[in-house]
Computed example of a mutant assay.
Amino acid sequence: MTKTIAFYGSSLLSAYWNGAATYYRGIIRALHARGYQTTFYEPDVYDRQKNRDIDPPDWARVVVYDGTVEALRKVAAEAAQYDIVVKASGVGFEDDLILSEVMAAARPGALRIFWDVDAPATLAEMRGAPDHALRRWLPDLDMVLTYGGGEPVIAAYQGFGAKACVPVYNALDPSTHHPVPPEPRFACDMAFLGNRLPDRDKRVAEFFTRAAALLPDQHFILGGNGWHDVAMPGNVQKLGHVPTAQHNALNCSPRMVLNVARDSMAVNGFSPATRVFEAAGAGACLVTDAWEGIELFLTPNEEVLVARDGADVAEFVRSVTPEQAQRIGQAALRRVLAHHTYDQRAAQTDELFRLHAARMEAAE
């Protein structure tokens, strides 16, 4: 089985306004260790290239193309050279055109995949647009992979004509996210790191802002883009964009770290954010808003604290001691190292690729 992959996504080199970067890096790096050679094609848009947080890696070839249709068509034609062709969701530049051009260019016999890093949003788009490009292409693709979502997502994709839909969940890359010494500048009672997004605003207001307002004597930290003009209680310190290289310190320094799911992710369940594994990998005491399927990844009250609302978050901050927080964080670290690393996700993905190759050979 040959193992060359053309991967068309948002960005491998920059996590700036690109929450999928850690996921892409973890999966592609782990697949490289299994013998896969990946070329990642990313457009030069949204100032991501000006805000790179890694250099071009030795475990993938990266092609950055201009944000023009002409450049897009040129790199899409290169899909014909590869054994596996992947179009990811949320590239952020001419997504429908990339899908059509790339899949049309794929050579006969190539494995053609749509890799959805935001399945709830993609499915909502397709429900509202009968002529959606992905709806047209799904019956011709070999499989859909998603980084989250349980049976509702699988059933929805199959209902749209997907031959197969398999979740390949977020995970931990222990080489990049791990415990480090705490830094005084990030010391606080609770930290939340996440870009401001329309379908997370209300949940952040409930689980973070309300909790901070209920505890005026406690120190809260807010990191991420888009919060500069949002009113916050006086005990909240805004950091703005936090580069990936500082995430370990931000996770290791507070007494607790908060995860707040987007509305669509919470509704669909089984969609742990990258931050969940980053925090657990650093040994942080993680508090998350409640969503279906959390116990598949971390055990509530032992490896993670689950809050129903802002009052619950405030009670955790008020009552959980540093010693208790440390025990929970260490338990989470042990769990993710044992069951939720990108090496394990890559093993799953490799098996999917091999099974497809075997079916193709049997059909010849």
Rank of each mutant, 00 (worst) to 15 (best):
Y16P: 11
Y16F: 06
W17N: 15
G19D: 11
A20M: 08
A21H: 07
A21P: 00
A21M: 05
T22R: 01
T22K: 05
Y23V: 11
Y23L: 08
R25Y: 04
I27L: 06
I27D: 13
I27K: 03
I27P: 04
R29C: 05
L31N: 02
H32C: 07
R34N: 04
R34M: 10
G35L: 07
Y36H: 11
Y36R: 05
Y36M: 03
Q37L: 15
Q37A: 11
Q37K: 08
T39K: 00
T39Q: 01
Y41A: 02
E42H: 02
P43I: 04
P43M: 08
D44A: 12
D44H: 09
D47A: 13
D47C: 09
D47E: 15
D47W: 07
R48Q: 04
R48C: 03
N51I: 10
N51E: 05
R52D: 13
R52N: 12
R52H: 05
D53G: 08
D53I: 07
D53K: 01
D53V: 06
I54D: 09
I54P: 11
D55K: 10
D55C: 05
D55S: 15
D55T: 04
D55W: 08
D55F: 14
P56T: 14
P57S: 05
P57C: 00
D58C: 08
D58L: 14
D58I: 03
W59L: 10
W59M: 02
A60M: 03
A60D: 03
R61F: 00
R61L: 00
R61E: 07
R61I: 00
V62N: 00
V63P: 00
V63N: 04
V64E: 07
V64K: 00
V64M: 02
V64D: 09
V64W: 00
Y65N: 03
G67D: 14
G67V: 13
T68C: 10
T68N: 13
V69G: 06
V69A: 14
E70W: 06
A71K: 06
L72I: 13
R73V: 11
A76W: 10
A76V: 08
